[in-house]
Structures are given as structure tokens and as C-alpha cells.
Design a protein around this nucleic acid. Structure first.
Lengths: 272, 272
DNA sequence: CACAACCGCGTACGACGTACCCATTAGGAG
DNA sequence: CTCCTAATGGGTACGTCGTACGCGGTTGTG
């Protein structure tokens, strides 16, 4: 097996046995890269910049990571670990999926640059694997694995699609250095031209309606999520809607502490 | 208003009045860029490469487009024009949304690089505006504009999320130059190690189940789409399920020509 | 007909990822 | 212990990118 024939980054051993002690580590490099990407975007996390962040020479990073792309894979998996799915098949599937959805969304909002990396086939890093186990475990007792995959794809698509929009509008405001109202004022000439043309009645309707108070982003997300969960409910056997204690007892012994589902560990702040 | 103060690319006039006749055009440049991106990916569509494609000098492009980012915006809107939504509020909302979904998915599959551009706030190019009018017009008679936005966000999220997965797996196979079975053979050591560890029962289930014949990608998409449409149906008033002719007659007088709005001044060609 | 606006485009600059090389370090064999 | 050798940190250099700047030629307008 030649040097570059590892199937993915997780198969490549971090450290050989011989030679001098490495001064850094993959985890340390990944952490620094995430820190930079959070603060200045993924494109700012260049090899030179990351190396400077940890006090290393630029080329030293390549002793730990074969390429920048692979480093980004490490960063992505590192992020998956932030989603709290402990004790996840709790027996209340709606609560579980809601907690997962909130956690995933919050993670994306903390690390918006994740939207710009397109995973080339899930690389199945350790954190992602754990997430899969916990998340798919939620509906595993109710539906076939294929059905489960389909439903989770739907759920994930909703979450990612929604949060992508949040991210891109936030990014646009930051890029222009304008507040939301300033930005709207700036684009007024264009919007006004479109409205005045009379050719876009529905666009006009959206623009007009947007002036009246909308739901907060959090509430919008929750509202749509409820719809998705209702949609999932229709795909489950009727027994799934009732309490799951019977199923749980059948699968594993559990005490009656009454802790059906833990509160989401962190709630995204209702902005402004 | 200084030179760079245009709110977006659509406000910046393509041609001033004075001076010599330009040898090229935005449309021509955009077309060339799309052609390159289709064949070799968006990152291959560099300014130099695009210029060479149309026989121009590299810097000449900047007479037509302020920056590469803006050119990508033009490319994205050009793609929106490929989605056929003519006569779109037809009265059968399920058929309309299905046609839109198929069209959007097919467009993404023809131009997979679109997944790598994150729109910074919808830039509302002409083709996108038309698409909004037609698509949101489908449910406009049934629900409020806010509800409509929410439902369409859900639909679009599903489509984009699903097709993103198709794209990234296709890309991985192309990147590695392996067929799907070769790729699976290559990653066998890693997958086998995970399965053998016994720590990932659901991942194991997925891997095992994947050996038996699955639905085609088309059927998977259609299947999930039906679920989404069912979900949308529950948000509509009960009258919506029946034929819509009554509603259409009630809202606007219409002759039989089917030409509701003026034709867009330029239709992008359906490639190949 | 002169002038200013606009054209195409050549040159140049400061980034980027990373191939290559080198002196230095440290585990394992004798 | 001493060597051998693999592995280290990192400097230099190459080919790429987007694009700022400025030039000589072209053209509509006064």
C-alpha cells in the first residue's frame, strides 16, 4: 500500500512509532483551524495562518495532515462532536428529534463556515458515527432502516436548508457592514424598481408583508420543525405516538427517574 | 454614488453609452463560464480560463463584470432560467410542485457546482424573480404569504438536501476515479473495522441493508417528495384538494391562451 | 475635428496550497 | 553505550489564483 492509498483520513495513523516526539497534534491543529474559521471564515483558515496560530512553521502541518482538504474533514467531524445526543433514544422520539434539531442548528450557527464545505460522501469520522447511532436509534424501533434513512434525510434537509438561509443573510449583513435596516435602505432603489414595474406581484407581496412583524428566526424554525415532525409521525405505526415505556422495557431495563428527555443544553439566544 | 456602490450586479448597467463597441457581453461570458464549470467544476472556471474560452485577454472580463463573485451570481441566475415553470399556476398544485421539484433537481444534477456557491441573500436576478412568481403563485390562493414562504422553504430544503447528497457521492466517485463497487471495495478495511468493533450497530445495519437492492435515486427522490407534498396538503384548506378551476375563475379573468404574464425578455437555452 | 470616455489587455503584486530539501532528534539494534 | 535510520520542524520555491494599474487604440459627442 503506497503512501497515499489510505481510504480516508481516519485510516491514516496519526503517529508512527519512531522518530522525535512531535511538538503538536492533529487535535491541536484542528482546534486552531476551527477557532480561525469561526472568527474569520473558512477561507481565512489557511495553512500558514493555522501554523502561525499554534506557533509552527507553515509546512510543519503537513506532518500531521496530508492536505488542507483532509484537515477540513477533521474540522467537520470535530463539529459533529458538539451536538449533544447523550442518552438519545430516550423513548420520546419527538423530544429526541427536537433536541437534535436544535443542537444541529445551534452548531451550524456557531460555525457558519460549515455550510461551505461539501462533504464528499460522509467520511464517517468518530463523532459523525456516534451521531448516526444516536439519531437513527430514535426511530429504529418503529421503522425499517430504509424508511429511517429517508425520514432522517428529510429532517436533516429541513434543518440544513433553513439554517443555510439564516447563515447567508447574516453573512451578507456582515459583508456589507450594514445593519438589516441599512441594508434594506441601500437596496431600496432596486426593490422599488421591481415593485413599480408591476411584473412581480408576489415578490411585491413578500416585500410588503415583510414590513409587518414576523416571527423570530427561532420561532420560524420551530414552527417548520413541528410540521416536519408531524410529517414523520404519519410514517410511524400508531403505537409510536403513545408513550414508549413498553418498547423501552422490552429493549433495555431502565429506572423511573422521570427524566424523559433532558432540556436542550443550550438555547440559541433570541437575537436583539 | 461612487463606482462600487451598486447594491448588486443587476443594478450595475452592462453598457455605458460612450466609447467603442464592446467585443463581448455578460451573457457570452456567463455562458462560457457555465460551460467550463459544467465540464470541470466551478474552481476550473477561473478568470483566465473563461477569457481564453471566448478568445479574450484575462483582464478584459473586468470590463463586463466587477469581480468573479459577481460573475458567479450571474451564472447562478442563468441556471435558474433553465427550470421550466411556464404556465405554472395550472390549477393542480401537486402537479405544479412536482414539476418544479423535478426541474430543480435535474438542473442541479446538470450543474453540480451550484451546490458550492452559497448565495449571500437571494440576489433576485431576473430568472430567480420569475421563478419566485411562478412557484409561489401555486399556493398563493390557498395560504397566507408567510405560510407560503414557510412551505416553499420546506420544499426547497428537501430538494436541495437530497440532491446535495447525490452530487457529493457522484463527486467522490469521480474524484477517486473508481466505480461505486470499486470504491466500496477500497473502503472495506475501514468499514469492516467499524462493523467488527460492535460499537456501531445501526451503522452496521445500514451497511448490511445497503447490499440488498435499493430504490433508484429517482425513485428515492419521488418517494420522499410525495411525503413532503402530503405534508404540504395538511396545511392547505380542504377545498384545495379538489380541482382549482373555481378559484382561478374567481381571482382573475382569463382567456384560453394560457399566456398569463409577459414572456421573459430572454430565455436561457436548455443546454444540449 | 478635438476631446473624453471607453475599449482590450499586458504587466505586476500579494495571496494561496504544497513539493522538495535539509539539519536535527530520538528509538531500536549491536 | 554507540550507531543507524526514520521521523521531526521548517525554509525555500513553484505554479496557481484574483485583480490593481496603466497603456495605446477606438469611438460617440461637443
Amino acid at each position: 500500500m503506497t503512501d497515499a492509498e489510505y481510504v480516508n483520513i481516519w485510516m491514516r495513523p496519526e503517529r508512527p512509532a519512531r522518530g522525535p516526539k512531535p511538538a503538536y497534534s492533529r487535535a491541536q491543529i484542528t482546534e486552531a483551524a476551527v477557532r480561525i474559521a469561526d472568527a474569520e471564515g473558512l477561507e481565512a483558515a489557511t495553512m500558514r495562518r493555522i501554523a502561525a496560530e499554534i506557533g509552527a512553521g507553515a509546512m510543519s502541518l503537513y506532518r500531521y495532515v496530508p492536505s488542507r482538504d483532509n484537515l477540513v474533514e477533521l474540522m467537520a467531524d470535530r463539529l459533529m462532536g458538539e451536538i449533544d445526543v447523550t442518552g438519545m433514544p430516550s423513548g420520546d422520539w419527538r423530544a429526541d428529534l427536537t433536541r437534535y434539531a436544535d443542537g444541529l442548528r445551534a452548531m451550524w450557527l456557531r460555525h457558519p463556515w460549515i455550510a461551505t464545505v461539501q462533504r464528499s460522501l460522509p467520511s464517517f469520522g468518530p463523532n459523525q458515527l456516534l451521531l448516526i447511532e444516536r439519531l437513527m436509534g430514535v426511530l429504529d424501533v418503529f421503522v425499517s432502516i430504509d424508511e429511517n434513512l429517508s425520514l432522517m434525510a428529510m429532517l436533516n434537509s429541513y434543518i440544513e436548508g433553513t439554517v443555510r438561509e439564516e447563515i447567508s443573510s447574516a453573512k451578507e449583513f456582515r459583508r456589507s457592514g450594514l445593519s438589516e435596516s441599512e441594508w434594506m435602505a441601500r437596496s431600496y432603489p432596486y426593490v422599488d424598481r421591481l415593485v413599480k414595474s408591476g411584473e412581480y406581484p408576489i415578490f411585491t407581496k413578500i416585500v410588503m408583508e415583510a414590513r409587518q412583524p414576523h416571527l423570530s428566526r427561532d420561532d420560524q424554525f420551530r414552527y417548520g420543525l413541528q410540521r416536519i415532525l408531524d410529517c414523520i409521525a404519519t410514517a410511524l405505526p400508531s403505537t409510536a405516538e403513545s408513550l414508549m415505556s413498553a418498547h423501552r422495557e422490552g429493549r433495555e431495563e431502565q429506572d423511573g427517574s422521570g427524566q424523559t428527555h433532558s432540556q436542550p443544553s443550550e438555547r440559541s439566544s433570541r437575537a436583539k
